[in-house]
C-alpha cells in the first residue's frame, strides 16, 4: 500500500473499555491499521458497535488507545505529550454527529470561533474579526450569525458552525463522525457538498465515518469496512461497492433498501440473520462467521488473513477471491 506518502497512518490500534461484566474488557477497536493520503476523502463504514466511532475518537485523543500507533506526517503522536502533543494533534479535527451538543450554548457563534482562534494563537482582534468572517463565508453562513447563540440556529447551520470552528485551527485532517445523520434529508446534500468543497479548495483530508453506505460511496475515493472492532475490507470505493471481497460487505450492500419500488419488489428474504454479537465475547476465528452464509469449519479456528485482491483492495476472508470474482452467490436465508 502506498502508505509512505500517507498523511495520517494508524497502525495496529487497540482501544478497549471496561465491560459491564466485572473484570472483563471490550476491545472496541482490535488491531486496526488504516491510512489517509493528503487531501483524500476516505470512508469508514460499519454497523453500530463495530468500533468505527471509537477508532475516530482514538485518533484525536478522545479515547486512550491501549496499544498501537497514530502517525501524523510520520511523527508518532504517542511519543509526544503536553503542549507539544496538543499543538501537533490540532492538525486533526473532529466533527461530531450531534450539532446541538457540540457548541456551548452560552457562547455566541463569534465567541466560539474566537476561542478556537485564540487557542491557535491568533490574538489580534482585527485579525480575529477578519478570520471569523472568512470562516463563516467558507462554510456558507452569513456574517450576521456571528452575534447569534447556537439555540437560534437550525441543525444544518450549527453543523456548519462546528465545521467553521474546526477550520479555525487550519487542520489537515477532518474526522467526520456521522456528520449529516442528525440533519434533515433536504439539508444533507448541502453539508456533504461543503465537505467536498473544503477538500477541493483547502486540500483537507477527511475520514468520513458513517453507516449510510450510499453517502460514503459518493463522497469517498476509498473505503474501509469494519465489523466487531476489525477492518474486514478496504479499497477503492467503486471496486468495493461493485465487487466486494468479503461476504459481510456483500451482505451489507445487499441489505440497503432501494428507493425504486421495482427493485424492491424483487427483493428476497433478508441476507443476514440475527444481530451483531456482543463485542465482549467475540466469536473465535473470523468474527463474522456466526452470521456468515458461507461459514466453514476453518473459519472458527483461524482468524482469516488479509487477502490482496488488487493493488489497493484487500479483504480478510478465506474465500475473498471467489467472493470478489462473484463466484459466491449468497444463499437465501430464512
Amino acid at each position: 500500500m502506498p502508505a509512505d506518502t500517507a498523511l495520517l497512518k494508524v497502525e495496529n490500534l487497540v482501544t478497549r473499555f471496561k465491560s459491564v461484566e466485572r473484570g472483563k474488557w471490550v476491545k472496541a477497536v482490535d488491531g486496526v491499521s488504516i491510512h489517509l493520503n493528503p487531501g483524500e476523502i476516505v470512508g469508514l463504514v460499519g454497523e453500530s458497535g463495530c468500533g468505527k466511532s471509537t477508532l475516530g475518537r482514538s485518533i484525536v485523543g478522545l479515547e486512550k488507545p491501549q496499544s498501537g500507533r497514530v502517525l501524523l506526517d510520520g511523527v508518532d503522536l504517542g511519543t509526544l505529550s503536553g503542549r507539544k502533543l496538543r499543538e501537533t494533534r490540532r492538525a486533526i479535527q473532529y466533527v461530531f454527529q450531534d450539532p446541538y451538543a457540540s457548541l456551548n450554548d452560552r457562547q455566541t457563534i463569534g465567541e466560539a470561533i474566537t476561542e478556537a482562534l485564540i487557542i491557535h494563537g491568533v490574538s489580534d482582534h482585527t485579525e480575529q474579526r477578519r478570520r471569523i468572517l472568512e470562516l463563516l463565508d467558507q462554510v456558507g453562513l452569513p456574517a450576521v450569525l456571528a452575534e447569534r447563540y447556537p439555540r437560534e440556529l437550525s441543525g444544518g447551520q450549527r453543523q456548519r458552525v462546528a465545521i467553521a470552528r474546526s477550520l479555525a485551527v487550519e487542520p489537515r485532517v477532518l474526522i467526520c463522525d456521522e456528520p449529516v445523520s442528525a440533519l434533515d434529508l433536504s439539508i444533507r446534500a448541502q453539508v456533504m457538498n461543503l465537505f467536498l468543497t473544503l477538500q477541493k479548495e483547502l486540500g483537507v483530508a477527511c475520514l468520513f465515518i458513517a453507516h449510510d453506505l450510499a453517502l460514503v460511496r459518493q463522497a469517498a475515493s476509498r473505503v474501509y469496512v469494519m465489523y466487531l472492532g476489525k477492518v474486514i475490507e478496504g479499497g477503492g470505493s467503486l471496486d468495493v461497492y461493485a465487487r466486494p471481497g468479503h461476504p459481510y460487505t456483500s451482505a451489507l450492500l445487499a441489505s440497503v433498501p432501494s428507493a425504486d419500488p421495482r427493485i424492491e419488489a424483487l427483493r428476497e428474504a433478508p441476507v443476514l440473520k440475527g444481530d451483531v454479537p456482543s463485542p465482549t465475547n467475540p466469536p473465535s476465528g473470523c468474527r463474522f462467521r456466526t452470521r456468515c452464509p458461507q461459514a466453514m469449519e476453518i473459519c472458527a479456528v483461524n482468524e482469516p488473513a488479509t487477502v490482496a485482491l488488487s493493488s489497493d483492495h484487500s479483504a480478510a476472508c478465506v474465500i475473498a477471491e471467489q467472493v470478489h470474482r462473484g463466484e459466491v452467490i449468497a444463499p437465501k436465508v430464512h
Binding site: R188, A189, M192, A214, Q218, S221, S237
Partner: peptide
Amino acid sequence: AIPRAEDLPGSAFRGL
C-alpha cells in the same frame, strides 16, 4: 437527492 449507483465518487450531491 438520493445518491444513485451511477454517481461517481467525489461528484456533487444533489439536494434542495
